[in-house]
Each structure stands twice: as structure tokens, then as C-alpha cells.
Simulated scan of single mutants.
Amino acid sequence: MKLATIAALAAPASAYLITGSTVNCRTGPGTSYAVKKSYTQGQDVTITCQTPGTIVNGNSIWDKTTDGCYVSDYYVQTGSSGYVTGRCAVCSAPKSNQATVDLIAEFEGFVPNIYLDPVGKPTVGYGHLCSDSNCSEVRAKYAIPLSQTNGKKLLADDMARFETCITNLSGSKVTLNLNQYGALVSWSFNVGCGNAQTSTLMSRLNNGESAATVLPQELPKWKYAGGVVLPGLVRRRDAEVALGATATTAKAIPVSC
């Protein structure tokens, strides 16, 4: 189940025109969420509720449409820069368990200063990929060199995005316990949400195949960087498979609100 959202009961749905040439409607209120469908300029869409999200050209409001996805209010002709209907009530993605945090921390390792990862991207702390060579977004919150305490805070911040990613990419046929979910959070943290979105792994899960079958078959394939097999990635995929195979009664997906 994707992140559930329900409009305020008293708020009626209203229809408005799309102003952008091609506007993506996403599974959540932000540009990091998967694209569910696209709208064309002049198309009429019906808004069921609105919620804060990624800022787009100064507008932080996102509109949920009757298609069950979110579009930036910047591209919707509501006639207002504020809210024109009820707020969406949003269920949050499940939080990863300690085993998942420990796995990611182990394989990312802790480095207090900025360094280049195996494919040349500036990185700091527990595998945080910087937005620029100076890690300006990290420096805005924490001093570099990072303390280990601040490094773990940064890791928790980064994991939240991938918890949301896996939750939103999981359709109605996907059932995951907390360890299987954690294995996928670690994997997407490593390979990126975009790669997870287009992966055969998520496609198979969304087609109704069991995670117990899919994870050990698909995760080990993600061992390449720049076309070369990296031993560290082989070990990480093995650890993720092992975590996903560890029995637990704790459920993660579908999300319960």
C-alpha cells in the first residue's frame, strides 16, 4: 500500500486547470516521489485535498488529485497562493528497525570529513551523498568534520527519504515484514530511489511475487559500480538478503494508519 492520504471530510473536491506543459503527478507530495502519471497543459484536474511538500518555485503546497497522486500547486490554476481546500491527513512511512540502521552504518562506515565514494561523488558521515563538492546542505546544519553523534542524526535524516521511497513504490500486492522492508531501505539508500523505482525487483514485488523469493534473487544483481563488480557491494547485498530472510512478526507494508 502506498502512503495513505485522506482528505478532510468536510472539504469538497474542486476542479482546476493545469498550467505547465507536462506536469508529473507523484505518489507523494515531493519531487523525490515516484511519478504515477502526467498531466498536460489545460487539462482539468480535481483536487481532493492539499498538503505541504517540496518547494517548487516558491510554492510549498501540493495538491492531491482524484487520480490518487500529488501535483505541485505551482502548476495548478487555483487562483490562490494558499490553501483552497482541506488538508490531507498523511500516514508516515514505517521507521526502520535497529538491525537496518546497524547494517547501513556498517557498510557506509563513518567518515567525519568530505571524501569521494567509489564512483567519485562527494560524501560525508554515514554515506551521505552531498549536493555539491562543499556539502553545503550539511554545513547548514552541522559542523564539518562531523561528530559521530551528528553523523548518526544525518543518517537518520537520509534514511527517512528511502523509507518513504520504498513505502510509496510498494503497491497493493506487496507485503513486507520489518526485516524485508529494512533490506529494501538499505538497498535503495545505496542505489537511489530512481533506480529502485525502475527495477525488476520492485516490479516483481508489485506483480504479487513473494519478497522471500524476490529478494534473494534480485538483490545480489546490484553489485556493480561503473560496470565493475565491487566486493563491498557483494557483501552488502549478502547482508541485505540475510536481513530479509530473518524471521520477524513485525509488519511494515502494507502501512496501517
Rank of each mutant, 00 (worst) to 15 (best):
F189W: 05
S14W: 07
G208S: 05
I61W: 06
T27W: 13
L201N: 07
I104V: 15
Y39Q: 01
I55F: 04
V84W: 02
K223F: 01
G232M: 09
I47E: 04
L178V: 14
C69R: 09
T48L: 10
Q77K: 14
C257I: 00
P220S: 06
H128W: 02
L243E: 02
C91H: 12
R26A: 01
T85P: 09
A196W: 02
G226R: 09
V185H: 06
L169E: 12
S38E: 13
T54R: 07
L215N: 09
G120V: 11
W222S: 10
T78Y: 03
G192V: 15
A13N: 11
S133Q: 15
A13R: 15
C135M: 01
Y83Q: 06
P12K: 12
P12N: 12
V71H: 05
L169S: 07
L3I: 14
A93N: 07
V101P: 00
V234A: 13
V138T: 07
S133C: 09
I114G: 00
G42M: 09
K173N: 15
S80A: 14
T198P: 04
L9Q: 12
M1C: 03
R139M: 06
L17H: 08
E209T: 00
A34F: 04
A11N: 14
N97H: 10
I55Y: 08
A225P: 02
G226T: 10
V241H: 11
K251M: 13
P220T: 01
V35P: 04
I55C: 00
R139S: 10
N206G: 03
F189G: 03
A13K: 15
I253N: 04
D132I: 06
I114D: 00
G244K: 05
E209Q: 09
P112V: 02
T54L: 05
T19K: 09
T175R: 14
P231N: 15
K2W: 13
L169D: 06
Y115S: 00
P254M: 04
G79F: 11
Q41R: 14
G79P: 08
T31H: 08
T200A: 14
P220M: 00
I47S: 07
N113E: 10
I47Y: 05
I6A: 00
G58S: 08
D117K: 07
I166H: 02
P145M: 07
N168M: 08
K121N: 12
T22K: 13
N150C: 06
R139D: 00
D73Q: 13
L154M: 06
G192W: 06
N97K: 08
S80T: 15
I61S: 03
T51I: 12
N179L: 08
W62D: 01
G244V: 04
L205A: 01
M202N: 09
V56R: 03
Y224G: 10
Q77Y: 11
K152M: 13
P52T: 13
G42P: 02
R235W: 11
I144Y: 00
V234I: 15
G82Q: 14
T249F: 03
S188E: 09
N207K: 03
T167A: 15
K153S: 15
A211I: 05
C257H: 03
A247V: 04
T200I: 15
L219G: 03
I18V: 11
L243V: 10
G79S: 11
I166R: 03
G194M: 10
V191A: 12
H128Y: 10
T19Y: 02
K221M: 07
T40D: 08
